[in-house]
């Protein structure tokens, strides 16, 4: 039989819950960075300036073709060689934020490309400037089709936060590892970590789907 000890489980639960807050914070911060930088990557690929477009394109390709954990190590251990010394949190947020920014930029791009050419032409015919065309006409229409992808990556970044444990960010996985090496008990700790991830991921995914439907209605894109 499995040697499951409830008393141990309850004893470590508070520490795990506390670490869950860190995990949520890491996911939230990282996602916030990814949302903004991803938009920069996406818009940079649409400018008339070939060099800007090429740099953005290659950066996205490069980031998407290398593993996240390598990027985390790189920012934390290699940047100091160039005189950039970062705390685990800062390094972790930069790495995971950029990583997901490159994925989100592709989602944005897909969304932007889904807006029919006639919408751009109507903007020209109404003499709207570039910024207004983007932010008042194009982005609101590009957003609903981009939301499912954006939601997937929100859940994705949340599930990838354990990788930050490799540089010592005190999120769930890091805390669970610490508990394991103190107590030599792994069953209860890792089971609870799994359950905590599940308890957050599943409702989040359902909430995101409801949000998508709401946005479509609010934007008048479905009846």
């Amino acid at each position: 039989m499995l040697d499951w000890r409830w008393d141990f489980a309850f004893e470590v639960l508070p520490r795990l819950l506390l670490a869950t807050l860190n995990t949520l914070m890491a996911a939230g911060l990282g996602y916030g960075i990814a949302l903004v930088v991803g938009l920069v990557f996406a818009l940079a690929q649409r400018t008339r300036y070939r060099l800007v477009t090429a740099i953005a394109r290659e950066s996205v390709e490069f980031i998407r073709s290398t593993p996240l954990v390598l990027q985390i190590f790189f920012v934390f251990y290699v940047f100091p060689q160039f005189g950039i010394r970062l705390s685990p949190w800062t390094a972790g947020m930069i790495a995971i934020g950029l990583h997901y920014a490159s994925y989100l930029s592709e989602v944005y791009r897909g969304g932007l490309e889904s807006v029919p050419r006639g919408q751009w032409e109507a903007c020209t015919a109404l003499n709207l400037g570039t910024a207004r065309t983007y932010f008042r006409i194009i982005v609101p229409q590009a957003l609903p089709p981009a939301l499912p992808g954006m939601g997937n990556y929100l859940v994705g970044i949340f599930k990838d936060t354990p990788m930050l444990s490799v540089i010592g960010v005190a999120e769930l996985m890091h805390t669970a590892n610490a508990i394991g090496s103190e107590s030599y008990r792994f069953l209860e700790t890792y089971t609870m970590v799994g359950l905590l991830f599940l308890l957050i991921s599943l409702p989040a995914a359902a909430g995101l789907r409801a949000f998508e439907a709401w946005v479509r209605r609010a934007f008048g894109l479905s009846r």
Binding site: A122, A125, L128, I137, Q141, F219, L221
Partner: peptide, 23 residues
């Protein structure tokens, strides 16, 4: 245009005031 190209996320009225306000 042949296919109208109205802004789908805006009401009929919003379509008609967007340019006058913004431009």
């Amino acid at each position: 245009f042949q296919h109208f190209n109205l802004f789908p996320h805006m009401t009929a009225l919003q379509n008609c005031i967007e340019g006058p306000i913004q431009v």
